[in-house]
Amino acid sequence: MTKAEFTQEKGQLTVHLIGDIDHHGASMIRYNIDTHIMKAMVKVVVIDFTGVTFMDSSGIGLVLARHKTCQDCGASLYVSGVDRQMGKILALAGIRTIQNINV
């Protein structure tokens, strides 16, 4: 079961993705993530992939569309917790990843 959990502190919202991020899973969580980003009123949003068990190109669509949501809300989007396999997929879309966030 794909799900998203949220933590917020010091102007940063972290979206913890859990489970398989495929077309099916991404479509189940994307509106929930957008709602949290819009309500949070933060400067920094981090999507954390540590709990992700599988990701295909649906993960790229998920990140790019959240980037748009963040732009509309005046927030910057970062991606963390990406393993080698996910990094290979994100690299196809030119998405750079970070290991640690210090705000």
């Binding site: 790019l64 290979k88 879309a93």
Partner: peptide, 14 residues
Amino acid sequence: NERAGLGFAVMQAF
């Protein structure tokens, strides 16, 4: 629907 248009690119890469 948030498709990135990279399905075939991933298949070809992998």
